[in-house]
């Protein structure tokens, strides 16, 4: 679905990505993990065309993103950001239908789709008339996911979707999101710094460090066959202190 060939990106003379090669297969859930500043969010922004690479090429469905009509391509992608990125002056419903409205969908079709998505994400229908500030963190993320799914995109890109939530809500939403991903059967690319969350959602993990891919593979491979000291250290650093008490 996505292919990045020798992609580099530099911000203010600091390399954010250096010579990255990556392929993301269709229908698979891939997690980009790594410490802060490792380049995982930049990678996601390149995939959705929010940033252009300084070197290299990003292909989406075998077409060079730089040569394609980004507006058209983005209707095939749904994007969810950390805090939801909901517009505070619009209700949940208005946020969800924003893009469909601009594309001229008729109101009946819009309503039908919103109800479908509310059921899919277990969101109460009366909550649709509330503003983002009146929703809980988990509900905001659900609305953001519904907005991303409104046009039924081929790919879902999620940048730390659960990063701003407290642990209890996070665990509950993890299970729900995972079930949603399974039901919608889409290609999902997820950015997280939490390796257990990455392992929970994704079959394919890409561990980034200083703008390069340190290792990619399954969680099992990363844990049992770390390719470098960094990979081993990253995994050890995320072992829960509770493990030592068990």
């Amino acid at each position: 679905m996505f292919e990045l060939r020798r992609v580099s990106k530099i911000y203010d003379e600091t390399p954010a990505l250096s010579d990255v090669n990556l392929a993301i297969r269709s229908g698979e859930t891939t997690a980009l993990i790594g410490p802060s500043g490792s380049g995982k969010s930049t990678l996601l922004r390149l995939m959705i065309g929010l940033t252009a690479p300084d070197r290299g090429t990003v292909f989406f469905d075998r077409v060079d993103l730089a040569a394609s009509d980004l507006l058209k391509v983005r209707t095939r992608m749904g994007y969810v950001i950390q805090d939801g990125g909901l517009f505070p002056h619009l209700t949940a419903r208005q946020n969800i239908v924003l893009m469909a409205e601009h594309l001229g969908w008729d109101p009946v079709r819009r309503e039908h789709r919103v109800e479908e998505l509310a059921m899919l994400s277990d969101f109460p229908l009366d909550g649709l008339e509330r503003f983002p500030s009146q929703l809980s963190g988990g509900q905001r993320q659900r609305v953001s996911l519904m907005r991303a799914l409104m046009l039924d995109p081929d790919v879902l890109l999620l940048d730390e979707p659960l990063g701003a939530l407290d642990p209890m809500i996070r665990v509950g939403l993890q299970a729900e999101l995972s079930a949603i991903f399974e039901r919608v059967a889409k290609t999902v690319v997820l950015v997280t710094h939490d390796i257990s969350e990455a392992g929970f959602f994704a079959s394919h993990l890409v561990l980034m460090n200083e703008g390069r891919i340190a290792q990619s593979g399954s969680l099992r491979e990363l844990v049992h066959e770390p390719a470098s000291d960094f990979v081993a250290a990253f995994i050890n650093a995320q072992r829960s202190p509770l493990e030592s008490l068990a």
Binding site: R45, R74, Y79, G85, L98, H102, L103
Partner: peptide
């Protein structure tokens, strides 16, 4: 605030 909280990016991704 919208810019730093990536809401403006969200606009781009929504084709707005």
């Amino acid at each position: 605030t919208m810019q730093v909280s990536e809401e403006v990016d969200a606009l781009h991704t929504l084709r707005l």
